[in-house]
């Protein structure tokens, strides 16, 4: 069964289905070519998720089931992933830089005797079939490409970098049950309590439009104007780390390297300078619109449309004009 030409995707289940980032990683593995693509899926039960993974491009699913995987404790998932690697014998192990992936992938890499090429935005094979991983470094000021020397090579993909394949229900693949010998002693960092703030309205990750505010807003009050604009556009409100650290909005609003990674159609950044830490979370938006009084702000480099001006004057007029445009016609989502 182990295939030294294969690629193993470390998958993740959300509500019993493969996570979008997992389907993207499968697509990235297929695009690399060169060998069959396996997917590890681990949970209390894997069930239909295996068929979904196969329809989305997997040739094999390594299914690991344990009651101890119900909460996706990183300790248990790392053990499951290591067992799947032992069963599949891949030359490349590919994960996604999701919340869980941030914990699991570096540890898996070191357990396999190598390190992780993390948060990759491009993957390729060199002439010898070794993985070339490209990722933004030094605050997004440089793209570094490294050749992965480990056997296997271990990399994680930035979510939203590639599109998942169209599901094809006629695809076939094999489901292999793997025993990862997960027991109580496996989970050494135990979750005592998990508190999720009741998501008020649309999740940032699901929003088609995001209106985000930063340090330039100067305080918490302007976020009400951002919320008004977001509501008008059927979107959600985000923020930079500076605005969250200042306590103007909750941490859950934060977009960026240490916050959420979002991929909306439209990202409207108001009073955000565009520090690389922020851009890492929104660079995959289809279009960025920047409103900032500083003509030299970094945000303009990534923006499709920019206005240099005082947000307090630009935003009300912008919102009012949009209100007129949208109330006068049936809205056509772009």
């Amino acid at each position: 069964m182990p295939d030294p030409t294969s690629i193993l995707v470390i998958g993740e289940l959300v509500d019993g289905a493969p996570a979008p980032a997992t389907l993207e990683a499968i697509a990235a593995a297929r695009a690399l070519g060169g060998g069959p693509v396996g997917v590890m899926l681990a949970g209390e039960s894997v069930g239909n998720a295996a068929q979904t993974a196969i329809a989305s491009g997997a040739d094999a699913v390594y299914a690991i089931e344990s009651a101890l995987l119900a909460d996706a404790a990183p300790d248990a998932v790392v053990a499951a992933a290591a067992a799947a690697v032992a069963a599949a014998g891949p030359r490349i192990v590919l994960g996604a830089k999701t919340l869980l992936g941030r914990d699991v992938m570096p540890r898996l890499a070191f357990r396999l005797g190598t390190a992780l090429a993390s948060d990759c935005t491009a993957l390729a094979l060199d002439g010898d079939g070794r993985l070339l991983a490209t990722r933004p470094t030094y605050g997004g000021n440089a793209d570094a490409t490294v050749r992965c020397l480990g056997t296997p090579a271990v990399a994680s993909l930035r979510p939203g970098t590639v599109d998942a394949l169209e599901a094809d229900a006629t695809r076939t693949g094999e489901v292999v049950a793997v025993d990862a010998a997960i027991d109580e002693a496996t989970v050494r960092t135990r979750s005592i309590e998990r508190v999720e703030q009741a998501a008020s309205g649309l999740r940032l990750e699901d929003a088609r439009v995001i209106v985000s505010g930063g340090r330039g807003l100067g305080g918490p009050e302007p976020f009400e104007q951002l919320a008004e604009l977001a509501t008008l556009l059927g979107g959600a409100v985000g923020a930079s780390r500076a605005a969250c650290d200042a306590g103007w909005v909750p941490t859950s609003y934060q977009v960026g390297l240490t916050g959420k990674t979002v991929t909306p159609e439209l990202y409207i950044a108001v009073g955000i300078s565009g520090a690389s830490q922020h851009m890492a979370g929104c660079a995959n938006a289809k279009a960025i619109v920047a409103i900032n009084k500083d003509a030299g702000a970094n945000i303009f480099k990534d923006a499709r449309f920019g206005v240099i001006g005082d947000w307090a004057k630009v935003l009300p007029a912008f919102t009012e004009q949009l209100h007129e445009l949208l109330s006068g016609s049936t809205r056509q989502p772009g």
Partner: peptide, 8 residues
Amino acid sequence: AFELVSLA
């Protein structure tokens, strides 16, 4: 684990 190929 890695060797640098390019920095651009």
